[in-house]
């Protein structure tokens, strides 16, 4: 009996701890969404803790148009889409060649990519800025996408290479006997087989590109080209974002709600993908 009480008490404590931390994680977001539907005067009177009297879709409208959130959002979509496709194509080609094909200097090249993952470059954006400026890629979509492809490259190549190393060669051999060349083997055999690795690469890099901040900050000065994260920073320090808190909250909701929904829908895959990526690096 005494043992049971003690156990119950312990469980109670553990649950309280867990639930209080969980509430501290969720509550700010609920508050954010709630206050994004309020008018500014209502927000100031009740601090966003009560439900809105009348839902103000106008806040979202202002954030989308005046705050340019729509443009930023579209830009982020473009950059993420292009960079992730680029990363998948380029790194699966490279991973395939590193795992299966023979050429000189193969080990050295693989070592280079590994070393790039190991060495932290906290100021990597400084020389990149100068070089991109010299080539004229500063403030262009192409420059940013290429830079983001490079950011995801070494990790993705490593993931693909280790995946291909474990893959049996029989299917490729069969395809080769049927007369496929290397490129068609890659497209028709290797890529479909590599779907689990591709899933990890896509999830990890999509989130990485979507949340990237420093490079975008350095590369873009034209507001019409900025992705969401830099755009949010601009928006928050613009006249609309500084004075009108509920519009700022609407902007934050626009930026975070899609991610939250996607995350909740495929939470297991995302956690698996991100931890797999991080543990390698």
């Amino acid at each position: 009996m005494k043992y049971k009480i003690k156990k119950f008490f312990l469980l109670f404590l553990v649950h309280t701890f867990l639930i209080s931390v969980a509430i501290s994680c969720i509550f700010p977001f609920l508050w954010m969404i709630n206050s994004s539907f309020k008018s500014n005067s209502e927000f100031i009177s009740d601090y966003g803790f009560k439900f809105p009297h009348k839902i103000m879709w106008k806040n979202y409208f202002i954030a989308f148009c005046q705050g340019k959130m729509g443009i930023y959002f579209l830009n982020s979509l473009i950059y993420t889409f292009v960079s992730v496709i680029g990363i998948v194509v380029i790194s699966s080609l490279a991973g395939y060649s590193l795992s299966r094909l023979q050429f000189r200097g193969k080990n050295f090249i693989f070592f280079l990519f590994l070393a790039a993952m190991m060495i932290p470059t906290p100021a990597g954006f400084v020389p990149l800025y100068v070089l991109l400026k010299a080539v004229g890629l500063l403030n262009t979509r192409v420059g940013y996408c290429l830079a983001m492809v490079n950011v995801g490259l070494s990790l993705s190549i490593y993931l693909y290479k280790t995946f291909f190393d474990k893959l049996p060669r029989d299917l490729e051999d069969a395809a080769r006997i049927d007369g496929c060349n290397r490129l068609r083997i890659w497209w028709h055999v290797i890529l479909p087989l590599a779907r689990p690795a591709t899933a990890v690469v896509v999830i990890f890099n999509a989130l990485n590109v979507w949340n990237e901040f420093v490079l975008a900050l350095v590369i873009f000065s034209n507001r019409n080209l900025m992705p969401l994260q830099v755009g949010l920073k601009e928006f928050a320090s613009s006249s609309v974002g500084l004075t009108n808190y509920t519009v700022l909250m609407a902007g934050l909701t626009i930026a975070s709600l899609p991610i939250i929904i996607i995350y909740l829908m495929m939470q297991k895959h995302i956690i698996k993908g991100i931890t797999a990526g991080a543990l390698v690096g």
Binding site: F29, F213, Q229, L232, A255, I259, I260, I274
Partner: peptide, 8 residues
């Protein structure tokens, strides 16, 4: 959820 959202 918090690490998935961006620093900004």
């Amino acid at each position: 959820l918090l690490p998935v959202l961006s620093e900004i």
